[in-house]
């Protein structure tokens, strides 16, 4: 079973690495400038591997650049969410009074249905990458904050925290040096979950036409394809709709595999002597 996890993890990591390389080196990988207009609605050929769309852009190049946009949004949102969520979770778990306030805010935000509200707000504000990112951030920090806090609540009961207080470690030092390293595994798992969520949600918003029309993400490619009537009567969808869809699916799969493999790595060393489950 451990072996299985390792294999899946490597597969996931492989998939993600490919996408990241594509995103970083998009200008070198894309065969054409995605804004360049060629003859519209061309079928795949040696010069346009995935053909062109209704306004004549090379679809493959669009998808390659789309990788950049999609991953960028997911990455920025996840990183900031984790930074904010972890810091607040640490503080909330360690200092009771501030923690109480933070958790009430979290409770309020968490009772709001996330996706519907995002859709509603998105339909009112001007769609742009930064607005999308801001929108996701409103919710992104809450789950990590809550999970980290509950972990800190148990960690701070450990005697080694008292032992560090005793040798004169300040609260900040204890949080930084002793508590943070112990919650990092949780943060990583939360990071992956948030990235999955953002990738899916962003595609969904684009699909509904609430994405940034100038920043071509995978979701936007998909959206434009969907809006074009020809898609229903010919097999154009095979190279216009399917590839961005597959990109989304594979990224999510890759993230899931990595998350699954990490779970094993982060597990403590000993199993429970009294029963099945592992500590």
């Amino acid at each position: 079973m451990i072996e299985g996890r390792k294999i899946l993890g490597s597969i996931g990591l492989g998939i993600l690495t490919i996408f990241v390389i594509v995103a970083v080196f998009a200008p070198y990988i894309a065969p054409h400038d995605p804004h360049q207009m060629y003859r519209p609605m061309e079928h795949p050929s040696s010069s346009h591997l995935l053909g062109t769309n209704d306004i004549g852009n090379d679809i493959l190049s669009e998808i390659v650049y789309g990788t950049r946009v999609s991953l960028f949004i997911a990455f920025v949102v996840s990183v900031i969410s984790m930074l904010v969520g972890t810091s607040l979770g640490l503080v909330a778990g360690y200092f009771d009074k501030v923690g109480f306030l933070i958790m009430r805010v979290v409770d309020v935000v968490l009772t709001i249905p996330r996706l519907p509200l995002i859709i509603v707000i998105a339909s009112f504000i001007r769609p742009s990458i930064w607005n999308l990112i801001a929108l996701f951030l409103i919710f992104g920090w809450t789950m990590p904050a809550r999970i980290i806090r509950s972990e800190v609540l148990t960690l701070r009961r450990r005697y080694y925290i008292d032992a560090t207080k005793m040798i004169g470690g300040s609260d900040f030092y204890i949080l930084w040096r002793h508590i943070l390293p112990n919650v990092i595994p949780l943060v990583v798992v939360q990071f992956i979950m948030e990235a999955i969520h953002v990738i899916l949600a962003e595609s969904g918003l684009c699909f509904l036409g609430l994405g940034d029309p100038v920043a071509m993400s995978w979701g936007m490619v998909f959206h434009y394809a969907f809006e074009c009537p020809i898609i229903y009567v010919s097999d154009v969808w095979m190279w216009w709709m399917l590839p961005p869809g597959l990109c989304i699916v594979f990224t999510v799969l890759g993230l899931t595999f990595v998350g699954y493999a990490l779970e094993e790595t982060f597990n403590p060393k000993l199993k429970n002597p009294f029963g099945g489950m592992e500590r």
Partner: peptide, 18 residues
Amino acid sequence: RGEEIAMILQNPTTSLNP
């Protein structure tokens, strides 16, 4: 484990789920 052989671990604080 548990049914046939049980072990009483040495370090109670770390062995109990907090």
